[in-house]
Each structure stands twice: as structure tokens, then as C-alpha cells.
Design a protein around this nucleic acid. Structure first.
Lengths: 141, 141
DNA sequence: CATGTAATTGCAACATTGTTGCAATTAAAG
DNA sequence: CTTTAATTGCAACAATGTTGCAATTACATG
């Protein structure tokens, strides 16, 4: 019963077994379109063991398939990585934006030159978390 | 017994009672110089109730006296805010940098124009978390 | 400087979140 | 189909965070 769905293939490419849990978690996060709160992932995945979910999230993160989108709060959000993420390093040219009006979190692509240079430091990786009004709310308000 | 230490004064300025817990927590984080891991704050403050520490951290954060320095991990770090932070908004012109060599987290001032502009969005606040080699490790390595 | 009052604390109990070891199950390679 | 290593579920535990309430404390006021 070897599935050949895109996610199953993606998993095997990364030398990971294409198990039901992993495929479901991925589909769910992917379908959500925006970074998905961990608690919601949990709620939506009844039928799987709580521990399995934790382990699944760990494995998918470690292997550059999903990534954390930390917000300045308690909840952790997860989103499916773009194809440029490798096993060893996440390469995101986007920032995580939380709208203070609709409270939605989104991954915003910033092809603009987003750079961080600190004298004397060697910056190999950085993440940006922003808040304010998203495109929709900015128009309406 | 009205203390007039700097932290006691700072607290009263923000309409907060200058209690022993708050002053100790503040002194401790301040003395640490870098963002201090929450777990270490806990360990260092035996004699106070666990709950009191949580509540203290919440109050100090809410009032712009300390701020979270989130790293892409599980542990949360706290640092004393600069004077520009008000009750309603934190204004940090610095980024949080974690050195991958010495593992130290530091607040790095970036007076350079660190800007985030997304077409259609109104960005009122953003945080940057970077990693790589800090000044010390960059020289030595 | 005594005192009233609202804020803060400690305690107990609970809820949530995350971890570990191990036996049973399963993916997938041959 | 069989073998094997990875993954899962379970149980038990550890850590983390929350709530209500009575006792205590800071400090404003007189």
C-alpha cells in the first residue's frame, strides 16, 4: 500500500517513512494555508496519540519540512516550508506577520533585500516577526 | 520602609508597587546583562513562590519593564527594557542574537535603519532574531 | 506615623504541555 | 513474502502554567 501522494513522496525524498500521521499532519498544516497554531493541530488530529504528534512535529521540523513561526506569545505556529529548505538548514525569505486586527498569522514573502548586518558579527540566519495590519484589514480599516 | 533604589522608583513610576519579588527579579535579570533564561531565573529565586514569579514576569512584561527575547527553541529569555519602552508598547531598536559557538544570547543595538516594509501592510512593530557568530567568537574562530 | 484599602503573595489544587522507556506495529527494502 | 529498522501507542512521569482564595503587604491618606 505504497502511497504516491505528493507528501508521501516528499517524505521519502527526505529518507523518512511516509506514515499516516505524518501525511495527515502535513496535509492539515498545508491546507490551513497560514501558520497553524499547535493547539489547533492537536484538536484537529484526534485518533492519534498525543506523543506521536509531538514526535511527528519534531521530525518534520528537523528535516526542513515544516517550520516554527514564533509569535511573541505562548502559542507556537507551524507552516509547511518552501522547497528551498534543506534538511540541515531552513532558508526563509519571508517574515511572520501577525495582524492585530484579525489576529491571523501569515508568512509574507519579502524578496526585497532584507538584511541584517552587525559590525563584528557573522550573521548566518535570522527571523523576523512583525505585527500591525495585514493587507485586508489595512484597506477596510 | 519605602525603598528608593532605582528599580523601586522605576516600578512606582509605572504605578506598580515596589515589592521585594519585583525588585529581586529585576536586579537579577539586570545583573545578568544578557537575556536570561526563564529556567535560570526560577532556579536563582528560591524562597519565592513559583506562582509569584510567573505573575511577576507577566506584570513586568506588560508594563514595558522587561521583554521576552524569543529564540527558535523552547526556552524563553527575558531582558530588562531600555528606557524607551512604554507601558503600552515596547520599542526595541535591537535584535536578539544567539551565537552558535558560545550559545550566548545577546541584545544587539542596531541604530542602523532596520526597516520592514511590505506592500499593502502596515507594520507597527517587529522583532528580529538572528544567529551566527558573535563578535568574540568571530575573532577567535 | 497610624490606618484603611487595594494590590500582591503563598498555598493548594488543577490543567496543560512535553518527555521517556518499552512492547507492539508498520513501512519499505531485498 | 520476509526481514529489519523505524514508528507508534501506552503508561507513567516531569515540567510548566493557571485559578481561586485567604493572608499579607505597599503606600496613600489623613
Amino acid at each position: 500500500m505504497k502511497e504516491s501522494t505528493p507528501f508521501a513522496t516528499l517524505l521519502r525524498d527526505r529518507k523518512l517513512k511516509a506514515t499516516a500521521t505524518r501525511i495527515e499532519v502535513l496535509s492539515m498544516i498545508y491546507a490551513y494555508k497560514k501558520p497553524m497554531p499547535f493547539s489547533l493541530i492537536q484538536k484537529s488530529l484526534l485518533g492519534f496519540d498525543r506523543v506521536t504528534l509531538y514526535r511527528t512535529i519534531h521530525v518534520l521540523s528537523e528535516n526542513g519540512i515544516i517550520h516554527k513561526a514564533l509569535m511573541d506569545e505562548n502559542e507556537t505556529y507551524y507552516a509547511v516550508c518552501s522547497s528551498s529548505c534543506s534538511t540541515d538548514h531552513h532558508h526563509h525569505k519571508h517574515i511572520h506577520f501577525k495582524c492585530s486586527a484579525c489576529n491571523e498569522v501569515s508568512c509574507v514573502q519579502t524578496d526585497a533585500s532584507l538584511q541584517v548586518s552587525i559590525p563584528g558579527y557573522l550573521t548566518t540566519h535570522f527571523e523576523v516577526e512583525a505585527s500591525g495590519l495585514c493587507a485586508s484589514c489595512n484597506i477596510e480599516g
